[in-house]
Amino acid sequence: MIFATTLMLMGAMTLMLARLLRGPELYDRVLAVNSFGTKTVLFLCVFSFLIGRPDGVDIALLYALMNFIGTIAILKFFRYRALDVALSRMPSRNTRKKAGAKS
């Protein structure tokens, strides 16, 4: 049962790989990489159950984070051509004060 799920997940990963290689549009590739990462996280969890060792889940947890950071970096890279621009301004202290003063 777990083995069947592992095979299914691997099939899904290979399909994602196909999309990544063929992807005409740039954003198809971003999508393919991102969902390849999520499927790998799931595969790691199921696989660590298959071999009976609990350590694979740590790696799954780690890669869930890394995948998010990677995708955000890619998107910022294409959206703003710069990694250092602020995606969203934290309301700086004076605006909060102004907002505070107003309300």
Partner: peptide, 14 residues
Amino acid sequence: LGGGFFVLAGAIGV
């Protein structure tokens, strides 16, 4: 198995 099926369906969809 259900989860596996959904993930596979999504992959084929993509």
